[in-house]
Design a protein around this nucleic acid. Sequence first.
DNA 1: CTTGACTCTGTACTTTGGTACAGGGTTTAT
DNA 2: ATAAACCCTGTACCAAAGTACAGAGTCAAG
Lengths: 132, 132
Amino acid sequence: MESLTIGQLAKKADVNIETVRYYERRGLIPEPPRRESGYRQYPVETVARILFIKRAKDIGFSLKEISELLSLRVDPDRSSSEVKKRAEAKIKDIEEKILILQRMKETLAGLVKGCDGCRPSSECPILKALEK
Amino acid sequence: MESLTIGQLAKKADVNIETVRYYERRGLIPEPPRRESGYRQYPVETVARILFIKRAKDIGFSLKEISELLSLRVDPDRSSSEVKKRAEAKIKDIEEKILILQRMKETLAGLVKGCDGCRPSSECPILKALEK
DNA sequence: CTTGACTCTGTACTTTGGTACAGGGTTTAT
DNA sequence: ATAAACCCTGTACCAAAGTACAGAGTCAAG
C-alpha cells in the first residue's frame, strides 16, 4: 500500500476531496501519477503537504503566499540569492505576525485577570496595544 | 476638526470608503452620528479601530472573530465569567498561532542559512517541521 | 451661484477558497 | 456478476470580504 487514492488522502489530511483537486488545479500539490483508469495515486508525503497548507492558511497566509512558501523548498538553483531573499522576506512577515499576536495576547491576558484598566466608558487598552 | 468624514477616515486608515461602510454594516465599527445632511461624522478613534481590524485580519482572524474580540473589550460586566471564558479561548487560539508561526520561522531560517540540509531529491525539513 | 469633489442608499459584481452535483466510468466485496 | 462505494471531468454554486456603480443629494471654493 505505497500510495493513496484521493479519498484516502482526503481522509488522512482531513479535507474534502474536492479541496484536494482544487489544490492540484492551483498548483499547491503536484499532479500525481495515474493508473490506467485515470485514478490518481498519491504518495504518502502528500498528506504532510496538505497539512502544511492547512496550518499556513490558519495563520493568515493566502494560497498564493503558500505556494510561494512551497516553491522555496523546491527551487533547484540552491545558492540563488533570489530564493534566499524570498525566504527572508517571509521570515520578516512571520516575525511581524508573531509580534502582533503577542501584543494581542498580553492585552487579552490583562483583560482576563481583572483588567481594572478597562474603566467604564474610557478607552480600553486593547486598541492601544495594537497601534503599531 | 474634531471629527472625520468617511473619506478622511478611509484615507487615514488606508482602506476603501466602501470598506468602511461595509464594516459598519457588519457591526465592526459603531454607527457614527450624522449631520443633518446625513453625512457620517467619525470620531478620530475610529481610525485605530480600523487599524486594529486590519492587523487582526492579517494574522488570520475572520471578521466574525474580530467582532468577538472587540466585543470582549466593551462588555460592561467585566467580572462575568462569560467574558473571561471567551477571552481565555481567544488566548488559546493566539498561542496556537504563535507556535505554528515560530515553527515556520525556524524552518525557513534553517533554509536561509546555507540550505545544505536540503539534500537533493530528499525531503526538505520544511514539511516535516509542520507536521503537528 | 455654480462646478467639482464628496457623500448618501441600494444593488450588483468580484475574488478567494472552496463545495456540490451531474453524468459517466471503475473497483471491490459478496 | 452485480451492487455499493469509489473516482473521473466539467460546470455550477457558495460564503466571506470587499468593490463598483447608479442615481441623487451636499459642500465648499472661486
